[in-house]
């Protein structure tokens, strides 16, 4: 039992390390992306300052709270932006799915470990670049209570797992049709809006808020960021986790079922 665990640990570690190395291989892309992000962040800050001009609160939030939220949301946004549709589409279109399916590792499990690894990597990268920029240029203010940080961490992790399971179901559509680019575009737009990357969800009209709450996206961005920026009080964290666990349970089961069905449909492109 412990031996099996140790082996699994070794496997997961090596998948994570590999993901990490592959990220490092794309250096140039990283700087371009960084520039874009800093630009976005600046635009957002000026936009919200203009909105708040002469007003105390907007949608129940004070200016400082909103700016903190938006800065954090922009840092987390790259972690929810991509999803699994394109990588899976590539695997299927290029026929590499054949290789992946002959490995004695569950494909979904492997994708999850990779997602987790890139979560860690992106987070580190975001904090060290955009994070420092936000701190020194826009005076990003963060809580000092380690309990809030821990709650944030756990919420982010759960939210990431929820989003992963959701994305996995759509990624499985690549087994049915290799033309998944359109699907990816729709997903990206929907996720960017309903995850709360652009606007704190509490500011939305009631009906839109309830639409957002019936989608899993906010769990991966809005909820953790709202916790960290104080929009959701720390005392509510346990409730938040309960909701997240419910989402996770439902989507984990759903994604397994969809995967099992989709694998039957695999056709491998090319010799």
């Amino acid at each position: 039992m412990t031996l099996a665990l140790r082996r699994k640990g070794r496997l997961y570690r090596s998948i994570a390390v590999m993901t990490f190395k592959q990220y490092l291989a794309y250096n140039l892309w990283f700087w371009v992306q960084l520039l874009g992000q800093i630009l976005m962040m600046t635009v957002f800050v000026f936009f919200w300052r203009a909105v708040y001009a002469g007003r105390g609160t907007v949608g129940g939030l004070e200016q400082q709270q909103t700016i903190t939220y938006i800065l954090l949301a922009q840092m987390i946004a790259p972690l929810v932006q991509w999803g699994q549709i394109l990588p899976m589409g590539d695997l299927v279109r290029e026929g590499m799915i054949a290789i992946e399916l002959t490995r004695p590792v569950d494909l979904q499990e492997r994708f999850y470990i990779e997602t987790l690894s890139s979560l860690g990597y992106s987070l580190l990268q975001q904090v060290l670049t955009v994070g420092l920029f936000a701190r020194f240029v826009f005076h990003l203010q963060l809580p000092s209570d380690p309990a809030i940080w821990a709650a944030f961490g756990l919420t982010l992790l759960l939210g990431n797992a929820i989003l992963f399971c959701f994305d996995w179901m759509f990624a499985c559509l690549a087994f049915y049709s290799t033309e998944v680019w359109g699907l990816h575009v729709v997903r990206e737009g929907t996720v960017m809006f309903f995850s709360g990357a652009l606007v704190p969800l509490v500011m939305l009209p009631g009906w839109l808020q309830s639409v957002a709450s019936w989608m899993p996206f906010s769990q991966a961005l809005y909820t953790p960021v709202a916790l960290l920026s104080g929009i959701i009080p720390a005392a509510q964290a346990p409730q938040v986790w309960l909701v997240q666990l419910a989402w996770l349970a439902a989507l984990a089961v759903g994604s397994r079922v969809v995967f099992r069905l989709a694998v039957r449909k695999v056709t491998v492109q090319g010799g």
Binding site: R7, R10, L11, S14, M18, K21, A98, T102, R103, G271
Partner: peptide, 27 residues
């Protein structure tokens, strides 16, 4: 399995690293 037209090794990794990974995958 070998599919003559594809590789099961990781394009960007040195062969030794790829083989290490495979050793871990097959425990």
């Amino acid at each position: 399995v070998v599919f003559g037209q594809r590789t099961q090794l990781w394009w960007d990794l040195a062969l030794r690293e790829s083989l290490n990974l495979i050793a871990n995958i097959y425990e």
